[in-house]
Design a protein around this nucleic acid. Structure first.
Lengths: 252, 252
DNA sequence: CGCGTGCTTGAACATTATCAAACAGTGTGG
DNA sequence: CCACACTGTTTGATAATGTTCAAGCACGCG
């Protein structure tokens, strides 16, 4: 089990002209989150031969925690959540998955998380063995996979720090900035604001807080004119610097 | 950034007679944590050609958070901690590293964590490029690396759940059980108890608690005769079942 | 329009943090 | 060998952050 919940599909992009001395250091490559691979690219065509489409409507589960990890999934549209439950029903959301993200790559035996649609979503699923064979035959893809896993691990460790040591306010500020980064490559303070596909409860379970705390803190940020709540699922970041300050970013 | 803090060296054990149809499913292999590779094994000899020994006395740092990730480390004796800091000094311990564990494997550019000795320790360090080349030439080792990373990811996600959703008592119970599992393959309730190489402060920073809370809860467990505090760094688990119950293990 | 779901706000409460002090074990020097 | 200091641990009292319980609000939908 485990993760590689959200490995960006950038990793299987075929060798392209934009790569200079990439064979040298596979580690330091950019791997932009918004990089989308068109189906005309060689590797994706190859991979999609073994994939089948899946539709998952808002609220539905694509994968149950503990299911045999027979497939690897790639999100093609919508947003999903990777969920873990405690026996008494307490819920933890490990990550939100968006187009381009993979799910279940690192789940060896069974899936470590459930996969549920936050909004209507579509995925493609690949039989694990086929996916592994594909990787086995493509050293470039393997290197990209490893680099992507490193990137995700880094994010997870930031999240451990967040859950272990940050205050509620710091958590929320971090979340908003991360989401802005992820959704729009850093914009979101401009234009028509930041789209929150998930509800307050999801945010709470992701940040290790209660829904009421999330609400209260959002209201507080709104009152302090640091954010604007355009509607329930749309937020404009008015003072990003303040959020950055509030997020207690680490020392790196 | 990133991790693979504690990838067990089992992954580079050469193909052995104990592996049946291993080429088939690289995922479901056991990978016992206590598996130690003798230096006479082929792969380790190969690897150690490019490694140099490092000594790190209690309290010293082997790696600073943010250092260029020039080396991969393998613990040969002692216990170390992988540390992240917030700007104001709050500390988070991502993991404790014990003999056989690797550090820095997934740190692409710079190290995401500091590495400090909890007790006098020895390590071996391998230049990253050499380590990568070694992997590139050994598909078996690669598969084992991937399997080990999956296993570690699984553990990290359990820890996310712990930090996000478990109570202080549940965290401590989980910690004690995990440590018993790791140190002694499950014993520790028997014999001369469980060795805690780290101090209370380390435990607190690992569990997202304060040192006083850890002390108080340990005292409570002691008073309830669930554990026995033999000395400051030695604990006997008297009622493992109760701890298991208290740990709020997940649903899997 | 009325119901339902999800959001927001308030008040009381609980868990865990903070502050403070005492205690235990270890090593040092007189 | 004992007094002393030092570090790490334990315990207590108080405080704060975030939770819980409860009620009201708003938006969407039949």
């Amino acid at each position: 089990m485990g993760v590689a919940l959200a490995i960006q599909e950038a990793m299987i992009e075929p060798p392209a002209r934009t790569q200079e001395a990439s064979a040298a250091s596979s580690a330091a490559r950019p791997l932009r989150p918004t990089q989308i691979i068109s189906n005309t690219d060689g590797a994706t065509v190859e991979l999609d031969k073994i994939g089948t489409p899946v539709v998952c409507r808002k609220g539905q589960s694509a994968v149950q925690e503990g299911d045999p990890a027979a497939y690897v999934y790639r999100v093609t549209s919508g947003t999903l959540r990777a969920v873990k439950l405690l026996p008494d029903g307490r819920r933890h959301i490990a990550n939100f998955l968006m187009p381009g993200d993979f799910f279940g790559l690192a789940d060896c035996d069974v899936h470590a998380h459930g996969l549920e649609a936050v909004s209507d979503s579509t995925l493609r699923k690949y039989p694990r063995r086929g996916f592994e064979n594909f990787l086995e035959g493509d050293a470039q893809a393997r290197r990209r996979l490893f680099a992507a896993m490193c990137k995700e691990l880094s994010a997870i460790h930031e999240h451990l720090l967040l859950l272990g040591r940050k205050t509620a306010t710091e958590r929320l500020a971090t979340f908003l900035l991360d989401l802005a980064e992820r959704l729009a490559g850093g914009r979101g303070g401009t234009e028509r604001g930041l789209e929150l596909p998930m509800n307050r409860s999801d945010v709470a379970d992701y940040l290790g807080l209660r829904i009421e705390t999330v609400c209260r803190l959002l209201s507080e940020l709104k009152n302090r004119r640091i954010i604007e709540l355009i509607d329930m699922h749309r937020i404009r970041l008015l003072k990003r610097e303040v959020l950055v300050e509030m997020s207690a970013g680490d020392c790196n």
